[in-house]
Design a protein around this nucleic acid. Structure first.
Lengths: 220, 220
DNA sequence: TCAGCACAAATTGTATACAATCTTATCGTA
DNA sequence: TACGATAAGATTGTATACAATTTGTGCTGA
């Protein structure tokens, strides 16, 4: 049964525990459930998540690489969350990176990726007219992710995904202001048009405008 | 015996095996000793390095986070080294990041860090006059690292250190050209002066100039 | 009182054992 | 011959056991 096999392959639950633990701890740190300075005692976490130390320690190593914890040999792991300063820095870094990314992406985007961008933008229009804000939040992220991947720049993609994830836990925009969706759609259309006309300068300008306004929307 | 204790504490060999393995494998991948696509079979690596699988797997998780390997669950880890395209992209990213960094650093540098920069630049002058190229390579890296840290931007520091490390394995500059050291010293002096005058625009311009010339020196 | 030591408990680091999954080789059948 | 089923071997995933180190505690003696 190829169908069943297919479904099994995609839904299969043989994801390593270390990955699940990594995501769980990442979530707990970014959501400030675990706070900066907290000691992460392996045995306690093992009991909490009901796993052995082997996959847990692997998850800790990944968190360490991402800078979300700091470990001192033979002493243990300590949470290193994001301070308000970190968030502010991260925001600025993200803005710069997004602006760079749009130039790279316009230069390197493939036909298939362009179609993906088309599709994503159409969804964006659709859900804007539906006024479906939760859906829009996802589509918004997806739109930017398409751009990230279109840069075909491995390191930049990794950074941008990290920035997007980390910042998604910080104070959200004022989604429910009356013009929110219309403004956002307009700004994305400008970016989208730059891809259609293959105009890097226009793309940079549009992204810069979008980033500026995103910041404003957060704090107005 | 406080002295002995001190020396022990610093030279102590109780660094986790996972860290040693991580550095070793990182080196092997960046130096292209392990090539893109190579399968990393745990048991083989264990035999090669004479360790058990536990610390080895922890090292693999860190390499994975850094994007130097890719692991497929239940299938194993595969080397994902840097293609020429990656190196080119990385170079451009590094250049942009260095330019951003110098602005941040000039704004945020502490007195202590300024002194460190003074000292490093003095060493730079000293070894330029001595014409000691190997020493200069180290001082050069150190000078930039002082700037990285002076940004006090956690993420940016992490990225820049990664860029510097990764690119240090790529084709080196033509160090032994007659004017190499003098040119490099001049360019760093311009950057250094911008710190003294606390002039971000001058700093950006100087770093931009330095980056441009660094590229030229690589390929002339 | 308290510095300093010794020992016990807790915690991290590493090795090994076992379980689950994937790969490969073999064989039989159409 | 080509193909698929199947079982053996190899490899990865997880749990447990043991070793090394750190941390906590109580005692001693100046």
């Amino acid at each position: 049964m190829s169908i069943i096999k297919y479904i099994e392959d995609n839904h299969k639950k043989n994801r390593p525990l270390s990955l699940t633990l990594f995501e769980r701890l990442q979530e707990d740190i970014l959501s400030n459930n675990l706070k900066t300075g907290d000691k992460l005692t392996e045995s306690k976490l093992c009991k909490e998540y009901n796993v052995s130390r082997t996959p847990l320690r692997e998850a800790l190593r990944q968190l360490e690489s991402d800078g979300l914890i700091e470990t001192i040999p033979n002493r243990g792991a300590f949470v290193a969350g994001l301070s308000p300063q970190d968030v502010s820095d991260l925001t600025e870094l993200r803005n710069q990176a997004e602006i760079s990314a749009v130039r790279w992406a316009i230069e390197r985007i493939t036909e298939k990726e362009r179609e993906e961008l088309d599709e994503t933008f159409e969804f964006m229009q659709f859900y804007t007219h539906k006024n479906d804000i939760p859906k829009m939040l996802n589509i918004n992220k997806a739109f930017h992710k398409v751009i990230y991947n279109a840069t075909h720049n491995k390191m930049l993609i990794k950074s941008l995904n990290e920035y997007q994830l980390y910042l998604s836990y910080t104070n959200p925009s004022n989604y429910y202001e009356p013009n929110y969706l219309r403004e956002v759609l307009y700004e994305h259309r400008e970016i989208y048009n730059a891809f259609l006309s293959h105009d890097k300068d226009a793309g940079e300008a549009a992204m810069r405008y979008h980033m500026t306004n995103s910041m404003k929307r957060k704090f107005r």
